[in-house]
């Protein structure tokens, strides 16, 4: 039998021989009955004239294609374009993302539409769409922020280096040049970095420095220390520590004979600059000079 022979049979396109063969088959009687009964089926009623009348009266109108000449036509056309542009730009502006940023030595607290909270550390920026918040909880981050996420649909933080997705939890994301760290304080956080997903349970960190994944110590606090006006580091290259110092006090840091790759463990105050400078210089065995907004860290040349 040829392909789709049932269709050919129904349309009377089977050859005489094929038809004979089909008639002999067991199923033929069933198909014959199906053909006969289905030929008596009827669709629901449809009044063509009434539908046409409805179309003409309600939808098309009596003289739809005759447009009266009007002296104001051109003016109306221009007005319509202007109105369109205005509404268009209104909606465009309306849908633009909300963006909040902090300068150096500045911090900001943001409450999102669902009462989730973001605390933004110095020199950072977040943006999100307030209008589409109900549909998509998504925040773009540049810098460092601590998130307290209300329970609900997936909450995503996208950064230039990786993406963090959670359901409802508290976590910190730091996205600085060459430095990416996510710390989960409550719940479960999923981090996607270089297309690899890592699940972070509460009390764990994910850290990448200069492209290298670094085993990170567990946080022993309920919040990142910077929320309480302190910056804490555990085995972090000095260069990143000094960059954070610059952000917290809005100062310029210079170094002389200092190895910036030296690992620093410790805490500095974000409110008292003299204490902070001491906290960094003493354990690293370096000296500093503070002049206005400039700090110079220098090491005595070893003899």
């Amino acid at each position: 039998m040829q392909e789709n022979y049932l269709a050919k049979w129904l349309s009377g396109e089977l050859s005489g021989q094929e038809l004979e063969e089909f008639k002999k088959s067991e199923a033929y009687a069933s198909y014959q009955k199906l053909k006969e009964v289905s030929g008596r089926l009827e669709a629901p009623e449809f009044d063509v004239d009434q539908a046409l009348m409805q179309l003409k009266n309600e939808r098309i109108g009596e003289t739809p294609k005759v447009i009266a000449l009007h002296p104001f036509k051109k003016f109306l056309r221009v007005a319509a374009v202007i109105a369109l542009l205005l509404t268009g730009s209104y909606f465009y502006v309306n849908t633009l993302d909300e963006s909040i940023s902090t300068e150096y030595a500045e911090r900001s607290q943001i409450t999102l539409p669902d009462n989730s909270e973001i605390i933004l550390n110095a020199g950072s920026r977040v943006s999100f769409s307030e209008k589409n918040w109900d549909k998509k909880r998504s925040v773009a981050l540049d810098g460092e922020a601590f998130f307290k996420v209300a329970k609900g649909e997936k909450f995503t933080v996208s950064t230039s280096q990786g993406t963090v997705a959670v359901l409802g939890t508290q976590f910190n994301v730091e996205n600085r040049e060459g430095f990416f760290e996510v710390t989960c304080y409550e719940g479960l956080v999923s981090v996607t970095y270089n297309d690899t997903e890592t699940q972070l349970p509460a009390g764990t960190s994910f850290m990448v420095i200069d492209g290298a994944l670094i085993a990170s110590p567990k946080p022993n606090t309920a919040q990142p220390s910077w929320v309480n006006n302190e910056s804490s580091f555990e085995s972090i290259p000095l260069g990143y520590v000094l960059a954070e110092l610059e952000r917290q006090f809005n100062i310029e840091v210079k170094t002389q004979n200092v190895d910036k790759n030296l690992l620093f463990t410790g805490t500095f105050s974000n409110t008292d600059i003299n204490m902070a400078l001491k906290s960094i210089s003493t354990p690293s065995r370096i000296n500093y000079k503070l002049e206005g907004d400039n700090v110079l860290f220098y090491a005595e040349k070893t003899p």
Partner: peptide, 11 residues
């Protein structure tokens, strides 16, 4: 034709 064939068969 294929749809028709399959429809008849399934019915």
């Amino acid at each position: 034709e294929k749809r028709m064939h399959l429809a008849l068969k399934a019915l």
